[in-house]
Nucleic acid binder design. Structure first.
Lengths: 280, 280
DNA sequence: CAATCTTTGTGCACGCGTTCACAAAGACAT
DNA sequence: ATGTCTTTGTGAACGCGTGCACAAAGATTG
C-alpha cells in the first residue's frame, strides 16, 4: 500500500468509515471491468475476489451506502457503478493542477487513469522558467508565477505536488491560499496544512522500505529454519540488546549481491556501537 | 495514502506491528534530516512533529524496537538512524528491477530516493523491442525475454511493476517464478500471488478518488451550512435511498439522472488497456 | 402456492491500533 | 547528596475494523 493517511483523525465522514471509503475505488474498478464485459450482476463473493477483499467485508461496506443488492441474486453491476461513482463524487468534473513537472510530474500528466475517472488536468505548473511553454502531454507548462491565477480561473480544488521535497511546503501554502482544499503529495515531506485541508501522500521509497523489512524477515526465517550454520551463529552472537529484533537483521545475507551484502552485514555487526552512518 | 496493503492478514511480524513498520520509514526520513543538520538528540515530541505523528505513538513504536532513548534527554539521532535502518534491513543492498519502462517506469528509474536508501536499480525491463538498448536513467533497457536471467544473475528479490494493467499478472508470475518474493505494483490490478510473496500497491487514481470523496463532502457541508437554496432543495428532493448519504452527493448530482450518470461512469475506457504508458 | 435454494444484510465478538496518563529513570542544579 | 525537572516507557482503556455466522429476503422450481 503506497498510501499514507495524513492528519484527519480517521473521522468517520458522515457515517461511512474511512476504511470503507478507501475500498470504494477498488470495487469501482472491478465493477467497471465487469461492466465492460457486459456482466449484468455479481455476487458479493465474485466481486470480492475480483477486488481482492473478503466478501463479508464487501457486503458490510455496501451496507453503509444502502441496500443495493438483491438476495439470492447479487448486485446489479451498472447500478452499483453509478451508486459508488456518485458516492465518491466522480459524477462531476474535478479539475486538478500538477505542480512540479519533472519525471514524475510528466508521468502523472500522461497518466490515463485520471481522465477516465472524472479528473481533468487543468494545468501543469513548474518553477523552472526554461520549462514554461514546453508541451508536456499535449499541454503547455506554465510558470509558478501564475499559480494563483490558474487555480482561481479554473476553480481548482485538488492539487498534485510532484516537486522536490524542499519546495513542497511552500507550494502547498500557495495552493491552499489560492483555494485548493485537497492535496496529493508525492514529495517526501510532511506537509503542514490548516484544518479543513486534506492531504494524502504517496512515497515510493517508503513502500520499498516496508517491502525490504518483510523481505529481511523472510530471509531471516529461512536461515533459522535451515538449521544452525555460521550465519545463525553470528546472529545469535549479535543479539544482545534488541532481543528478538537482532536475529533476522544479522541473518539476512541473501544469495544475491554477494560482496555488497557482506560488506553491509559486516558494518552492522556488533549490536549498537557502530558509527551508524546512513546516507540520506 | 497512496498505499494499499495487500494480503498478509496484518500478521504481526515477529512482534513489530504492521502499523509500526509502516511508520518506521517516516521516522527515518525525519531523523536523516536532523542528522544532516548535525542535531545530536531529539525528544519524542520534536521528532513526532517532524514525522507528522503523535508523540505517544512514536514512543510506543520505538518501544517495540527496544529502549533507545534516555529519559530527560531524548533520543540520540545517529544511533536511532542506525537502529531503524537495521530493523528495516536498509543496511544491506537490495537490487530491484523495474518492469515496464513507460513514463512512470522511467520516472521511477530516475527517482533518487531509491539509491539513497539501499535500493539499487539492477535492471530496467520492457516488452517493447523498440525500447531494448535505449538508455533510461543512464542504463540500457533490456527486453522481457531476459527477465528470468536478469533476476537470477543479480539475485533480485524485489520487483517493481509499472506495466499496463493487462500485463501485470503475467509479469508478476514470471518475476515470482524467477525468485522474486516482494512486489511493488503500480498497475491498477489485483495481483494474485502465492503465499510467502508480499505485494504492496500504489494506485494514483485511487488516491485521487479518496480526495474527491472528501472534497465532495466538504462542498456538501458548505452548501448545507449556507442555508436553504435551490441546491439544498434539490438535494432534499433527490435524497431517497441513501438516507443521510444522499444529501451531499445529490447536491452535486447533475440533473441528468440515472441513465446519463451510468453512461458517464461507463465512459471510462477499458480498464486494462491503458496506452502502455502509466498504470493506475 | 409451498418448498427449497441462494445470497444479502447485520448482530456480535474479537483483536489491533491509538491515546491517555503516570510512574520510573535519568539529567541537572544547588 | 539531595531535590527538582524533564522525558521516556508502558499499563490500561477505548474505539475502529474485521470476520463469523445466521436470520431474513427473495428468486426459483415443482
Amino acid at each position: 500500500m503506497a498510501t499514507g493517511r495524513t492528519h484527519r483523525p480517521a473521522t468517520r465522514s458522515r457515517g461511512i468509515p474511512e476504511a470503507t471509503v478507501a475500498r470504494l475505488p477498488l470495487y469501482l474498478r472491478a465493477l467497471t471491468a465487469l461492466s465492460e464485459r457486459s456482466v449484468p450482476t455479481v455476487s458479493s463473493e465474485e466481486l470480492a475476489t475480483a477486488a481482492g477483499v473478503n466478501s463479508a467485508k464487501l457486503r458490510k461496506d455496501f451496507s453503509y451506502l444502502g441496500s443495493y443488492g438483491t438476495r439470492g441474486v447479487g448486485y446489479d453491476v451498472e447500478y452499483l457503478v453509478y451508486q459508488i461513482s456518485r458516492e465518491l463524487g466522480l459524477t462531476q468534473d474535478w479539475p486538478v493542477v500538477i505542480v512540479g513537472i519533472g519525471n514524475l510530474g510528466a508521468a502523472l500528466a500522461n497518466y490515463g487513469g485520471f481522465a477516465s475517472r472524472g479528473f481533468r488536468v487543468a494545468a501543469l505548473i513548474d518553477a523552472d522558467p526554461a520549462m514554461a511553454g514546453k508541451p508536456v502531454a499535449g499541454m503547455p507548462v506554465q510558470h509558478t508565477d501564475d499559480l494563483e491565477k490558474i487555480i482561481e480561473e479554473n476553480g481548482v480544488s485538488i492539487g498534485v505536488i510532484a516537486t522536490p521535497a524542499g519546495a513542497a511546503q511552500q507550494v502547498s501554502e500557495r495552493l491552499i491560499a489560492a483555494g485548493v482544499t485537497s492535496i496529493l503529495n508525492f514529495a517526501p515531506t510532511v506537509l503542514s496544512v490548516p484544518d479543513g485541508v486534506d492531504v494524502r501522500k504517496v512515497d515510493l521509497s517508503i513502500e520499498l522500505q516496508i517491502l525490504a523489512f518483510h523481505e529481511q524477515r523472510k530471509a531471516g526465517e529461512e536461515a533459522a529454519a535451515a538449521g544452525t550454520g555460521p550465519v545463525a551463529e553470528a546472529a545469535a552472537g549479535a543479539g544482545t540488546g534488541t532481543g528478538t529484533g537482532a536475529a533476522p537483521a544479522a541473518a539476512v545475507e541473501p544469495p544475491a549481491g554477494r560482496a555488497a551484502a557482506a560488506a553491509a552485514a559486516r558494518k552492522g555487526g556488533p549490536e549498537g556501537d557502530v558509527p551508524a552512518v546512513m546516507p540520506a
